[in-house]
């Protein structure tokens, strides 16, 4: 008879927790795959489609499904490293098939040549182009992601991609490369031997 006590206890516990879990599964159900959001947050959101997917989120979905992580040129090496870190896989070099990493660029409309066709406005994924039909258009530089998508549709080819910053603003120190002769040393490294 004593055997029944633990059996009933466990049975009751099982029923209670089963009910709880069943409820939780319904009440706290997560729509979609949360990892997609996390991956998406690491992508540069240029929506350029260079990866072959129509936007950053579809690319995030393909990565979540096990696709390669090295198809995003605007993100470059740092994005690959962040993705590798998140997904706990080995970082790979950027797949050159999809483009190479470059300085950040913004679109620039040569306004004299613009005919006001609004084709670029329709192409812009972030509403960064201002203008209306038969009126000159212009790019709001601070909103432009440099995705390139407006260049193709332009019938008069008046859109250029220009670097966002001048070379002086873009310059920063590089890590010393011991193999190179012409190392950009700062003076500190010579002082020590003197004293």
């Amino acid at each position: 008879m004593e055997i029944l006590t633990p059996v009933f206890t466990l049975l009751i516990l099982a029923v209670v927790f089963g009910a709880l879990l069943g409820y939780a599964a319904k009440a706290f159900r997560v729509e979609g795959n949360p990892i997609v959001d996390e991956i998406n947050a690491l992508l540069p959101q240029t929506q350029c489609g260079q990866c072959g997917h129509p936007g950053c989120r579809p690319y995030a979905e393909s990565i979540a499904a096990g696709g390669p992580i090295n198809k995003c040129p605007p993100g470059g090496e740092s994005t690959i490293a962040a993705l590798a870190n998140l997904l706990d896989v080995e970082p790979e070099p950027l797949d050159a098939e999809h483009g190479v990493e470059d300085v950040r660029k913004v679109a620039y409309i040569r306004e004299d040549e613009c005919i006001g066709c609004t084709k670029c406005i329709q192409a812009c994924p972030v509403d960064a182009i201002l203008g209306s039909a038969k009126h000159m258009h212009t790019v709001i530089t601070s909103e432009c992601t440099g995705c390139d998508l407006c260049v193709e549709p332009c019938p008069v080819d008046c859109i250029d991609m220009i670097p966002e910053k001048n070379p002086l603003q873009n310059w920063h120190w590089q890590r010393p490369d011991p193999r190179l002769q012409n190392v950009q040393l700062i003076v500190t490294d010579q002082m020590r031997k003197a004293s």
Binding site: N40, A41, P44, Q45, T46, Q47, C124, P125, V126
Partner: peptide
């Protein structure tokens, strides 16, 4: 920061 901002713009779009 730029990515975050762009995402907001894209979602709005």
């Amino acid at each position: 920061l730029k990515a975050e901002y762009s995402k907001k713009r894209f979602d709005f779009h």
